[in-house]
Simulated scan of single mutants.
Amino acid sequence: MRLKERHQNILSATIHKYVATAEPVSSKTLVNEYNLTVSSATVRNAMGWLEKAGLLYQPHTSAGRIPSDWGYRTYVDQIMLPDRALREQLDQLLSQAIKEEVGSLEALLYGVAQLLATLSGYIALITFPQQQTSYLRHLQLVPLENRRIMLIIITDSYQTQSGLIDPPRRITEKLEAGEDIEQELDLLSNFLNQKLQGRSLSELATLKARDLEQEWKQDGEFLEEICQQVLQRCQSGASSQILVRGISQVLQQPEFSQLQQVQTLLHLLEAEQDQLRSVICNVVEGGVTVKIGSENPLEPMQTCSLVSANYYQGESPAGSLGLVGPTRMLYENAIALVEVAADTLSQSLSQG
């Protein structure tokens, strides 16, 4: 639905006023404070039409109106214009800040995250670069006293992962008979290292246990479980931490005055980073993604907006960054900040 210019102007004015005050907006306020060049009755009728269209709503019968998620979405898609002067100003600020961050990649990302949070007043999120070349360095099968087997995996970054596996029936029978299976597990470990050592995550993901079974000639289901665990453990070792900055700033917003809502969001940011990562990294290739309120798949974020983008090393995505705040967000600023930060960080990483 494409809005008429009059409706666009009134929706835009309502959003700007509500973002500034966090108070419902009346038609009288818009007439007095914005140069709409129309009568109070016209503004009142237009606001009524926007409410029927689902773009505004009244939180209380006697109150003014506030934007809905769909109202913000319409504003971002149809009305909002990029502020080039703001973008140039942010570009200079971030470029200077990155030049001052001499040292490790970690220090650089911490600095950018803190600057994003400070400039926006929202929560800044940055994922560390994924280890694109992560591969298996070594694995070992070790018998345990409880008739189970421990699979120990070492990745190229020397991170150690482990998991428990039930042995195949023939090995279980040997254990029950009191036979020593350590030598047999060593033989299988050596065979698997010969076949899997040095393989990347993408190669492990396409590996079929039956390809190994053709040479090992037995233990098909056991080999299948080992392959699955190797892939899962390597992926777990390669997953990237998420930097979180600016929680104290955003908690000052009136939308986060309810303790239960704050606790749910903090739990997501601190303890459910795997879920959070899937949302941050789900962005438009080469652009900025804006998810508003109920568009977010995670329930704790459905009263928030997320503005996110990828940053790159060369031509390959290295990680993602974003801003989380109330839906009552100054979208022009948030989008410009995320866009400039992603571009500046990409340039810094690509230049080495």
Rank of each mutant, 00 (worst) to 15 (best):
R137Y: 12
L175H: 08
T155K: 07
D166V: 12
L204K: 00
Q194V: 01
L119Q: 14
S120G: 03
I171D: 06
L125H: 03
A113L: 08
L151D: 04
L175S: 01
S134D: 06
E179P: 12
Y135Q: 15
N190C: 13
L125S: 06
P129F: 02
I181D: 11
T127K: 02
G121N: 09
M150C: 13
I126E: 09
S134M: 15
L139D: 10
P129M: 09
M150D: 09
K174A: 15
D186M: 10
V112Y: 01
L141E: 04
Q183M: 10
Q183L: 15
I126R: 01
A113F: 04
E145G: 09
L115W: 05
R169I: 12
S134F: 02
E176V: 05
Q197D: 07
E182F: 09
I165M: 00
L115T: 13
T118W: 07
E179C: 05
G111P: 02
N193K: 00
E179T: 04
E203C: 05
L204W: 03
R147M: 10
Q140M: 14
E145D: 14
E184R: 02
I126L: 09
T127P: 05
S134W: 03
Q197H: 04
L187G: 08
R137G: 04
E184A: 14
D156G: 11
D156R: 06
K174F: 05
E184G: 05
P129L: 00
G178D: 01
L141C: 09
L151S: 09
A177I: 05
L196M: 13
F128P: 01
T206D: 12
R199N: 03
L204T: 05
E173V: 11
